[in-house]
């Protein structure tokens, strides 16, 4: 056999950024996708109960959180450009902004959780809350992990590291824009 087969550039080589981060992104999308599909499937068994339960969530707060996250993602994307342009000062300022908006997201999310807890609503109250706590809780955990990751990659400030950290952060964005309409709006 000749070398041609192994040396031909594969589609994977076109992938921007770190391959392992893409493996993670696809895996996360599969998990959240399956979770949201399961949520909608169980909803068929009790539409009225789900609608009633959904009323307890902070729909407006979640809408604001969408704006917060996509803006934070924008800052992270600009930070990658700053890293590539070799401007570490601008990069760190942008990353700090992205992290701060992540914190804003968590505060709004926390307010919703606090209200739910105050109303005595737990995982077990209704199938809707099992899913909403699970899905948004997993997502919020990723927001926290992303904030830490962004802070870590801003220290060496190499374009490659910043790009990888920002990719994780965009994945958190991506999951939220799919999760928000399904859990809060439908």
């Amino acid at each position: 056999m000749t070398d041609q087969a192994t040396d031909r550039p594969s589609a994977l080589d076109q992938l921007p950024g770190e391959l392992m981060m893409w493996v993670l992104i696809v895996s996360e999308l599969l998990v959240f996708g399956a979770g949201l599909a399961a949520f909608l499937a169980v909803r068929i068994t009790d539409p009225a109960g789900f609608a009633e339960a959904q009323g307890h969530l902070h729909r407006a707060g979640a809408g604001v959180n969408t704006i917060v996250l996509v803006t934070s993602g924008w800052l992270a994307a600009l930070a990658v450009q700053a890293a590539e342009a070799g401007r570490p000062g601008r990069l760190r300022a942008l990353v700090a902004g992205a992290i701060a908006l992540g914190a804003v997201f968590l505060v709004l999310k926390g307010a919703e959780y606090a209200d739910l807890a105050h109303a005595g609503i737990t995982f077990e109250t209704h199938a809707f809350f099992t899913f909403s706590y699970l899905l948004t809780g997993f997502h919020a955990a990723h927001v926290m992990a992303g904030m830490i990751l962004l802070a870590v990659v801003a220290v060496p400030a190499s374009p490659r590291a910043v790009e990888t950290g920002a990719a994780f952060w965009h994945m958190v964005d991506l999951v939220w824009v799919l999760l928000f309409p399904v859990v809060y709006l439908l």
Partner: peptide, 17 residues
Amino acid sequence: AHVILSRYLGLSAAPPI
């Protein structure tokens, strides 16, 4: 989601993916 994948995550540079 399409905008985030294309622009934030840079997939506009890799149309098949």
